[in-house]
Design a protein around this nucleic acid. Structure first.
Lengths: 346, 346
DNA sequence: AGGCTGCGATAAATCGATTTAGCTAAAGGT
DNA sequence: ACCTTTAGCTAAATCGATTTATCGCAGCCT
């Protein structure tokens, strides 16, 4: 009974509201933005304006607001691949957090490709996003550095570059692996293998360090034979073959630590294929949880990432930067503890 | 060597480019938008402009363009929950498709809440998205209807409302279930149970219909005892209990068809908990694939959704609507065949 | 009475593009 | 020589808001 008069009914503009209320556009703007008092608009007039606004259901044209204020109220979220469970879960929390702060999300996936990542950053900046939430791919340091140089509000998640002073929040990779490793050692595993991926990112290096140092601190020698570093090229078949071979050639192997859930899942396939029993023939711990690990009998022990905390903290950090009053706190580095969850596999 | 002169270096505007090239802003605009010929700008001048554009790396301010042209080059993608595997996979394909067409995605999740969905639609329209890609939650018919009434380009995915003439693309739910059921019947299952969820959406009704009609067409009586309809309230514990009870009370049960992958996963938990062997004690088929089903021994037979096709087709449909030249083809209904994948569970 | 202050509201500039209408000079027609 | 085209380019309006600078008027002071 109110919307469709003619047929194409142009959207109501602030000017229209002003005309209907019999005031100037600026007055409407002040009232709507809570600057009525400051601009000393009388109560009376303010109410008249609000009445028209309510009656018409006027909503400001956000693009126009954006152009004028330079604030898009939009954040760019860049993940490796939205279909990965970790990233999807992250995205979910980020979205709802952003909503709480009155921001929208434009998301995009790098597919672990630095070139694509770089282009996406350009795309996002062309889109005038107010801030960036990025899980960086290897090789994106230049792009990140540039964002910093341009003083763009930015938070990295899941990884970071040691040479680039960007705020970042991620799990304590070293500590997480250490926790899992000590558990394996405590339960009596003697020959613990480590399956990781050859990716030039700090989180993988930290996990590796966690593996080696925990062994050393228990006076267990680190043998290179027990470390399998797979190429990150997405060739599942080849990886499965290599893991199988790795298990077969290491005779005394009694436990495996997988550095990512993706690897852990491949590992499960191999172990099942070889007819080995978990945990009797081979114990297993995996970094980063996954639905499968809860269900796959007998349940896989994992170090779970604190996804909620990561997302919320990252958001907080970003909001701090967006809050012009308190710029300056760059270089924030946050490592959140992972959660060790013991299941049947160890 | 070129970017940072002063310190706050305002972004280059079209006007700046014009000044540098010694021409009028309008000229630059024409050249950049391929209207040079039409506006009879000389080759010579056009080249001069392009030279400046290249040298400076000028990029138009998309918000300004958006305001002037009314095109945001942004699409709204609304899914039930981005962390669901089906939706995440869908989002992934949609993103890359959108990119191909030069569009960006603003995404948001309904969390299966019609109220939230309605608000999100408002949010998206305030954001001036050019089109909507929606997997609707129950109860959103009014909102969808309104979008249609406002002639908004729109495509529904995964579900639709029989009473609302909106273009939609989804799997052939009936046919998919039928395929799975016939497989179970062929392999000799006599008492096939059906576990579904009480959601008032057409796809669930179609799946139920698929179950019942396939039985009838094979002259097998449909027994209500063999149908379990769980409430959709996210209470996992309760659902697990009910499924377990369902299995225990139906003595002759030799196969289960799960109407969603979420239910299937719960089912796995129950079956494992009861110590039953798949497929010997109980065969199983699930609608909608999931990583777990590939891996969980002995592998779960599924009807896989054609996610790629759904996404690509939906995008195509949306682009058709955005292409003003050929409006009018509303009411497109597309049901794509699912892919039956036999694994060890049946 | 003239100048100053404070109040209440507005006119006009601005953000950065697109697009319509128009302007100037040269060419063509009679 | 005068009028009409046409080519080549630009001025100015516009999209829909925000924000700065004013403006008129009433009251107060001297």
């Amino acid at each position: 009974m109110k919307e469709q008069k003619g047929q194409e009914m142009k959207r109501l503009s602030l000017k229209d509201v002003a005309r209907m209320a019999g005031v100037a556009p600026s007055t409407v703007s002040f009232v709507l933005n809570g600057k009525a008092r400051q601009m000393r608009i009388s109560e009376e007039l303010a109410e008249k304006v609000m009445a028209v606004v309510k009656k018409t259901g006027y909503q400001p044209h956000s693009v126009a607001v954006n152009l004028r204020t330079g604030q898009s109220k939009t954040l760019g979220l860049m993940v490796e691949s939205i279909s990965g469970s970790f990233f999807a879960a992250l995205a979910r929390v980020i979205e709802s957090e952003a909503d709480r702060y009155g921001y929208h999300i434009v998301y995009c996936s790098t597919e672990n490709n630095a070139t694509k990542g770089g282009e996406l950053i350009k795309m996002l900046s062309r889109q005038q996003v107010d801030g960036y939430l990025i899980t960086p791919a290897a090789g994106m340091e230049k792009d990140i550095q540039q964002l910093i140089a341009h003083k763009r509000p930015l938070v990295l998640m899941d990884s970071y570059f040691p040479d680039v002073a960007a705020p970042h929040v991620l799990i304590d990779n070293f500590g997480g692996v250490k926790q899992g490793m000590e558990h394996l050692i405590d339960r009596g595993s003697k020959q613990i293998g480590f399956v990781t991926v050859d990716m030039n990112l700090v989180q993988m290096q930290e996990r590796m360090k966690g593996y080696k140092e925990t062994l050393r601190s228990h006076n267990i020698p680190v043998k290179n034979k027990l470390i399998l570093e797979l190429p990150y090229d997405g060739d599942k078949e080849a990886s499965v073959r290599k893991i199988r071979q790795f298990i077969q050639t290491n005779k005394g192997l009694d436990a495996l630590f997988f550095a990512t859930n993706y690897l852990g899942i491949l590992g499960l396939e191999c172990i099942a294929g070889l007819g080995l029993k978990i945990p009797d023939d081979l114990a297993m711990v995996c970094f980063d949880d996954h639905d499968i690990f809860r269900l796959y009998p007998p349940g896989i022990t994992v170090v779970q990432q604190p996804i909620d905390d990561i997302a919320k903290t990252a958001m907080q950090l970003l909001m701090n930067q967006l809050d012009k009053s308190q710029r300056a706190l760059r270089k924030t580095k946050l490592e959140l503890p992972g959660k060790f969850i013991k299941r049947g596999s160890s």
